[in-house]
Design a protein around this nucleic acid. Structure first.
Lengths: 374, 374
DNA sequence: ATTAGCACTCTATTTATTCGAGTGCTAATT
DNA sequence: AATTAGCACTCGAATAAATAGAGTGCTAAT
């Protein structure tokens, strides 16, 4: 749970970060004088706004946080912060609200390094996780549910995909005269079932011998190898099965977009920013349809950074997510299996907590995945 | 929109329907004089309200539906209908709105018998359904999605459960030294996987012989039979596996509440009755948490009626569903496997369409399930 | 039994008014 | 030069009053 995002304190010329700050990079360096005091004020504004969801006034900043300066001074600083784009005004006589850029700065440089979940919380989660032996999809569903509850936001979990799925074992079971159930076990312990309709009836014995033969010949191969291997086989049942096998293995590949498990959608409805029904509808549609995620998840899977990734509001290239922030972590085993666990909520979210949660859960899932491997 | 309403016309004394009318039965018979005209007016009010979501005025009833009577007459009838509880008034100067009882009456006696989906629709659905070979859980997910889209409401599908799950075949696959993957195939073609941690390491060969033995001894048995059968076995690996097997088979039993697949939640957000954010939140929580369904579904599974069941608004014993109607159908094979497919929407829903949809999808799922059986 | 006519009710909409939170600026202060 | 007190000004939110019109319910006429 170490923080690989350790605050290299961005000063005027210091700018060689390769990490997340998307387009922000240059702007941040351009920023003239981000004095300590100004940063402190920005931090307070964000903290306060995250808690109260109400624009923050200069008075609040001073009094609630006992700053040894006057509101007027704060107002001046605020004006500057606004000029630099870190905060905005809903209207003249309202307090300040952090902008996406403000949040970004906060996440990069201001936030107390996410310290991880508290021990009791970790224990609760572990408890829920290891209570029963479950199937993989139930694990994932559970993971989504726990994540949502812990972060008090919506959660998404994508099923793990392998970079190079290899066959470990297959079984053929007769279901009806011309119908067989093909069970595929991959080297990382994934089980996939598929119905296969056969050209002609086979007894269970025949099926058994076919599967024995296939097991012997194809063990440890990935889909493309299997494809080549059986290219010149005669057009018989074994060949048919092999074809189906290839299809299935392909489906398990990291390049295929995988099942997404969602939970806690109603959590974000409870946030005050979603008291506008139109917005809610749009958001719900996005989250349910999931088109945005099928785009964003592969992106995270193939990113070179391995840490937690934070997408704040408008930074999202996906219009539908403009009003939301997404915190994503990869889980799995480097170069072998990978999936994504994430949190979706309003831009006004507790980034620290979200990051900790996602980190912890991804850790859990990773160990789960490695347990399953041979 | 032709009116071929060939109602079975429930008249004053005519009351020997054995069907769905829950507590309604007596009330309906008590009702003095439900003349044809009054029924017609009620039908119109419901139809109109379903379409427009606005209280229906006497004028609308007369003019839009070209009735050869005057608005004043309609008003009189309306007053009576209201007295009998079929419709209400939001306030004095508003039109009429159907009550739960009104909808119930409509569904029982007024609705044109659901004629089923149109052929093109049926074909579209079939097309989506049979396009790819999928795993059972993907089928169910797909079913939920199709149902939601077809009925323009939220959909729920529960995974099929067997009344008496019997083992067809099991496989044991070595994953790690002390970890084996147990794959269970039941007689209805369900595949269930489970990790089993072993007391001591076993080679794949040993595992193979254990599973062969178990297969020979336990084939065709249900969980309780297996339990008895292995009661006096020695405390070895085979016994361990058998215990796990029993657990798993139990889980597949109809008495366990099963996975629920949901889709189209956002559809019902688009209904105008949910322009109130508080309501939306409550509803979403209900639908996501699903506690109401885990209660209502077993109930439907064990009902003796085999048709489509309609729960209208306040008839629901589950407070959370007060504002919603639920249309449910069982699918599966009588006495062997069963699951539920349903539609959830505002009480103001197109019951005819919902019923047709649910019927058709349950039919699809039934045939799917029977295909999988030996 | 039906209907025309009309008074009456109640909501939704609009407009005006007020209140106050919070800023931005200027001039005084340190 | 930085800070701050003081104050005018802005703008939204809340409240109140006025208006329009949709739709009913009742009565009396047909």
């Amino acid at each position: 749970m170490d923080n690989e995002t350790k605050e290299p304190a961005p000063n005027k010329e210091k700018s060689s970060r390769k990490n997340k700050p998307r387009e922000l990079e240059k702007e941040l360096t351009v920023n003239e004088e981000m004095t300590e005091r100004r940063k402190e004020i920005l931090r307070i504004i964000i903290q306060e706004f995250v808690n109260t969801a109400t624009p923050v006034s200069s008075d609040t900043v001073v009094h609630k946080y006992r700053l040894p300066i006057s509101p007027a001074t704060v107002r001046n600083e605020m004006a500057d912060l606004e000029r630099e784009g870190y905060i905005t005004h809903p209207h003249t006589s309202a307090g300040r609200v952090p902008s996406d850029k403000g949040y970004r700065f906060f996440v990069e440089y201001l936030m107390e390094r996410p310290i991880g979940l508290s021990m009791p919380e970790q224990r609760t989660i572990q408890h829920q996780f290891y209570q029963i032996q479950l199937e993989i999809n139930e694990w994932l569903r559970l993971a989504a549910s726990i994540t949502a509850r812990t972060a008090l936001n919506a959660a998404v979990v994508s099923a793990p995909r392998a970079y190079d799925t290899r066959l470990k074992r297959l079984e053929l079971i007769e279901v009806q005269e011309r119908l067989a159930l093909l069970i595929i076990v991959t080297q990382d312990g994934t089980v996939k079932e598929q119905m296969v309709s056969l050209e002609e009836p086979h007894s269970q014995e025949v099926l058994g011998s076919i599967s024995a033969r296939l097991n012997a010949q194809l063990n440890g191969l990935n889909w493309s190898q299997i494809e080549t291997r059986c290219r010149d086989w005669p057009e018989d049942t074994a060949r048919l099965i092999a074809t189906r096998l290839v299809e299935s293995l392909k489906m398990l590949d990291v390049h295929q977009n995988s099942q997404i498990y969602r939970d806690g959608l109603s959590n974000i409805l409870n946030q005050p920013e979603f008291s506008d029904i139109g917005r809610v509808r749009q958001i719900m549609q996005t989250l349910e349809g999931g088109s945005a995620f099928t785009a964003i998840i592969p992106e995270v899977l193939s990113a070179d950074s391995n840490g937690v990734q934070v997408f704040i509001g408008g930074e999202n290239r996906y219009d539908d997510l403009r009003l939301l922030s997404v915190v994503l972590a990869r889980y799995g085993i480097d170069g072998q299996v990978a999936g994504v666990v994430g949190i979706v909520g309003p831009t006004r979210m507790e980034y620290g907590r979200s990051i900790s949660t996602v980190q912890y859960i991804s850790q859990m899932l990773s160990s789960l995945v490695s347990e399953r491997r041979g």
